[in-house]
């Protein structure tokens, strides 16, 4: 049962960067403590030795669930074809020529 190193501001900065969240200094202070408390809670798991136990990622042991390689037959229920296209494009925050418009991939550093 190794004791855990407390989370640092740098840890939270790194994680926010990975998750694409911008944090202010105040945010950082607050979240560092709060996240650390959650990992404290998690470290209670150390009282169980599960080294020989396999992980479960799905509670029901299903395997081999497939669909046939065919387009949907009924139009409407799923909103296929033009309906989806129009409705999906209508939801776009910025659309040009039926495509979703985004700022350039590179540019001034953020």
């Amino acid at each position: 049962m190794a004791s855990r190193e407390p989370l640092t501001r740098q840890d939270v900065t790194d994680v926010a960067e990975l998750a694409l969240l911008n944090l202010s200094d105040d945010d950082l202070d607050r979240y560092t403590g709060q996240l650390d408390a959650v990992f404290d809670l998690a470290s209670k798991l150390d009282q169980f030795d599960v080294s020989e136990v396999p992980p479960t990622s799905h509670p029901f042991g299903l395997v081999n669930v497939f669909r046939a390689d065919s387009p949907p037959s009924s139009v409407g229920i799923d909103g296929t074809d033009d309906n989806v296209r129009q409705e999906a494009l209508a939801s776009g925050p910025d659309v040009e020529d039926n495509q979703f418009k985004v700022p350039p991939a590179l540019g001034e550093s953020p």
Binding site: F66, R67, D69, V84, R85, A88, L89, D97, N98
Partner: peptide, 23 residues
Amino acid sequence: EPNTNIHPVCLGLPGTLPVVNKK
């Protein structure tokens, strides 16, 4: 034409789920 072969699932719309193409 752009964005014609699309469906809620491959657009990743909230709530959609993937199902594997057997072929």
